[in-house]
Design a protein around this nucleic acid. Structure first.
Lengths: 347, 347
DNA sequence: CTGAAAGCGCTTACAG
DNA sequence: CTGAAAGCGCTTACAG
């Protein structure tokens, strides 16, 4: 900046005025300064500017998730950046790899960089207060439901409603014996599993289906396990007429198990979470899709509101999920009782 | 820092020494300063530190691609960050949306933030010099092949070798009539298409197959177009015994077209670019997989070498692709001549 | 409309 | 082993 000022024959303050578009500079001066900037390829140093600036903003956000490469995280990041660049705000992203230690270290690094805010998918939802403490008062928006009582904003898919939607859909097609594949209780502070389970079961209960008639497969850590467990379920005992998988690993396993048992066109399948190319399988896979773009957008908006000084009570924003019919979920129950089912949500 | 110094009863320089782990501070003093830091929750301001620091590093990298949400970009970003955080370096990421204007604006923003280096997948490879100019001497590593003559480091998949590998694989299985689905010439400065085409054709040529015997389907912008064109190819005229798709949209289209024509178990399919759940389709899809993690890692290493002062000639790093056999590519040609084919690469 | 002085939170180059 | 002074590249608060 010194050089620009010298070349233009003005004071540094005047250069600053031109760079920031402040008023009270004559056209002629502006012109001279512009030329000097051009000639010197001058780019103002944002960090230096922010050091003294009144509001102390760095125009930088931190985004921290378990693994940036997973489709959910990548899509959310994309939506956040869209919003952020509108405000000339950059997004620093990082993966904590589900390691709480690493998570805290990165948050501290964010604080050292004086980011204006942090969007965080915590390694462990139960420890959200540790993250908040590490953030030192910098606004944090959590991705995913928070244990009740956490004094922070959160944005999450409406898991209960989404699972209920799947249950309702299957009920309408006559399914009264649907297997539930997924965890039924919160673990590592991730309450999503529990919410999905309860939402699903409640809807079935409203239709008069007892929990004991619902086979439940838990502990489906990966697709391979899911495939084996589901295959076993199909081969032994009374067959379910439909399967609901509460997570994508389960869905992948179910697809294989059904096909290998020649049941992909006879047993219905609905999975929670959409995945690319779900329509390439035969039949296409019906899913409850999270509004990933919406989650990112709302998270960014919520965060920027805090950055701009909003000081209302922390709130959890529920983002609706959507049923995407692709075929696998529209298979009717062959043993359907002809008694028509009317959705509890609509009746 | 002032407050810490006051509370510890030392000068700010001593606090600085403790924070940076510099020598020549007595244990007792270190202890006092540590306590003060704890009590005040002091986090040094990285930006302020970098302002005066000798090497001028900001410990920040810029990563700019077309769309961060696509699997390739997300996986590369993940690998870059892994390397970066080892050096306490943060990664700012952004999507230029294939808009060259936006690309330049974001690069300028990176420069304003004084990033130590930039990893860029350009909107248009032909304009790489514009990007370099905007970067003002900050090291840039390009993702994807560069038009020859560009004075910059680049990291790219070995497209020609990868496509040749696919050709070789199909030849071994007796296929002498393989359809090529994909662009045959560079467009928008993306030379990958051309490289794949030439690599594929050269290998076929070595096996004595004339170019006129190879149906070529260009202009497959999206999966839907690909599906229609490939369906038509299969239904009319002499059937190919195998299909090679040079990009993922083509692969998705081919999967549908083959299945809808009942040919998924009779016509072989090999696609360039791996995709999640490629093993869920029946049969699993054989692909030439890019080493996305390797690309990100090498790009980061190349960039950090420049940041650390390496001043050798700019180089293009070719990363090998790998054939992943999953079934679709292992279907033999039914009209295979029994004359055994010996790979030109091995014989 | 314009610029000189002071200061943001640190590090550097010195002096003790 | 320790600290006072100067300065990184900007903005703020003033004075003209």
């Amino acid at each position: 900046m010194r050089h620009v000022a010298a070349l233009a024959g003005v004071g540094t303050k005047t250069v600053s005025r031109v760079v920031n578009g402040e008023p009270n500079v004559s056209e002629a001066t502006i012109e001279r300064v512009r030329h000097a900037i051009e000639r010197l390829h001058y780019q103002p140093n944002l960090d230096a500017a922010n050091l003294k600036r009144a509001n102390g903003r760095t125009l930088t956000l931190g985004f921290l998730v378990g693994n940036l490469a997973d489709p959910f995280s990548a899509a959310v990041l994309r939506a956040i950046e869209e919003k952020a660049w509108e405000r000339k705000t950059a997004v620093i992203s990082a993966s904590h790899d589900y390691n709480p230690e690493r998570e805290l270290q990165i948050i501290k690094n964010f604080v050292g960089r004086r980011v204006d805010g942090i969007i965080l998918r915590p390694a462990n939802g139960r420890h959200s207060f540790r993250a908040l403490e590490a953030a030192q008062g910098i606004p944090v928006v959590f991705l995913g439901a928070l244990p009740s009582g956490a004094p922070a904003d959160a944005v999450t898919t409406d898991n209960a409603a989404g699972a209920a939607q799947a249950a309702d859909h299957l009920l309408r097609l006559g399914h009264r014996r649907t297997a539930y594949c997924g965890a039924v209780a919160a673990s590592a502070g991730d309450v999503a599993a529990e919410e999905r389970y309860l939402g699903f079961m409640e809807k079935l209960g409203q239709a008069g289906i007892a929990a004991r008639d619902i086979p439940v497969l838990q502990n489906l850590q990966d697709a391979e396990t899911a495939r084996n467990e589901i295959a076993q379920l199909i081969q032994s005992g009374p067959r379910p007429t439909a399967i609901f998988t509460a997570g994508s690993a389960g869905t992948a396993g179910a697809i294989k198990a059904l096909r290998e048992n020649g049941a992909n066109n006879s047993i219905a399948l609905v999975g929670f979470d959409d995945f690319p190319l779900a329509d390439l399988v035969d039949p296409g896979i019906t899913v409850i899709a999270q509004d990933v773009e919406g989650i990112g957008r709302i998270a960014a908006e919520t965060l920027f509101a805090r950055v701009d000084g909003f000081s209302g009570e922390p709130a959890t924003h529920l983002i609706p999920a959507t049923l995407k019919e692709r075929g696998s979920g529209e298979i009717r129950s062959r043993s359907a009782s002809r008694r028509p089912y009317v959705s509890a949500g609509i009746s």
